[in-house]
Simulated assay, not measured.
Amino acid sequence: MDQQRTDQFLQHIKGHIPLVNHMGLNRICFEQNVVEFHIDLAPNLNDKGTGFGGSISAFCTLAGWALTTLILIDHDLERSAVVKSGTIDFFAPVTTDFIVRCYSPESSGPELLVNRVREKGRGKLPIIAEIWQGETLAVRYSGDYVAFEG
């Protein structure tokens, strides 16, 4: 998918999820079934001067939804997508502007999602979203997302 189409998707998110306009999400990249959110730390600070867990959790959840949705759009299958389950682990503080990188841990995950949606009208995608601070894994979110006609 070209960057212009991904930029339009970001504008769609900002138009339909007003909170995102205040959270410092600057850019979305989508290549080879990987989504990256580029985010400013400043609007997401907690009382300790590091990334607020609620904001980080929200971005990871949103990145999983965006990955599911963009995979489908890339295959001309515009469907509704929702989070089914998610778990987050915080390993280190987020102390700088950051990138949430989201992908399916199963290499065939995106293909299976697309095939199931085409065949059955719905499908599931497992995802991992991570935030790295230099060489340190700061956050890992794992979840399952469901796409369906709706």
Rank of each mutant, 00 (worst) to 15 (best):
S108Y: 06
I17V: 15
S104Q: 11
T68K: 14
L125K: 05
K14F: 03
Q8W: 00
L113Q: 13
N26A: 11
L67F: 06
S55H: 12
L137G: 04
L137A: 07
L45Y: 06
A58K: 09
L72R: 00
H16Q: 10
P110R: 15
T69H: 13
K120G: 08
G143C: 05
H22Y: 10
D40C: 08
K14E: 15
E135Q: 14
I28S: 01
R79C: 14
D89G: 11
S142F: 09
E36Y: 04
T136D: 10
P93Y: 07
Q8D: 15
G64E: 02
G121P: 14
T50C: 07
Q32H: 12
Q133T: 11
L77F: 04
I127R: 09
G109W: 08
G150I: 06
L70N: 03
V100L: 00
N26L: 09
D40N: 13
M1S: 14
Y145C: 08
Q133I: 11
D144H: 14
F37G: 03
H12P: 01
R118K: 14
E149Q: 11
M1V: 10
N44C: 14
L41M: 10
T50K: 01
H38Y: 13
F148E: 02
I39Y: 00
C60W: 08
K48F: 06
V114Y: 04
F90D: 12
L113S: 12
L137P: 06
A147D: 13
L72V: 07
F9N: 02
Q4T: 04
Q133G: 14
I13R: 03
F98Y: 15
Q11H: 14
V34Q: 15
A92I: 07
R118T: 02
R140W: 07
I127L: 12
E130G: 04
L10I: 03
E149Y: 03
D2N: 15
Q3W: 00
L137F: 05
F9E: 09
R79M: 15
P126T: 02
A147T: 06
V114M: 08
N44Y: 12
T136K: 13
V94D: 06
K84N: 08
L113V: 13
I17W: 01
A92F: 08
E31I: 02
I88S: 09
D40T: 15
S107A: 13
L70K: 01
F148T: 01
I39K: 04
K14I: 04
Q4Y: 02
G53R: 06
E106K: 14
R101E: 07
T68Y: 10
N46S: 11
D2I: 05
Q8S: 12
R122Q: 15
G143D: 10
D47C: 04
H38G: 03
N26T: 05
D74G: 03
I17C: 05
R79E: 12
D89I: 05
W132M: 14
K120A: 10
R118D: 09
E78M: 05
Q3T: 00
V139D: 11
L77H: 02
K48R: 15
G53M: 07
D2E: 10
R140N: 07
V114P: 02
G64S: 10
V20K: 08
S142N: 11
A138Q: 08
R118H: 09
Q11A: 14
P105L: 09
H75A: 13
G15W: 04
N115W: 03
H75I: 05
L67M: 04
E78H: 11
V94S: 05
S57D: 05
F37M: 07
A147R: 04
K14C: 12
N44L: 12
N26C: 13
V139P: 09
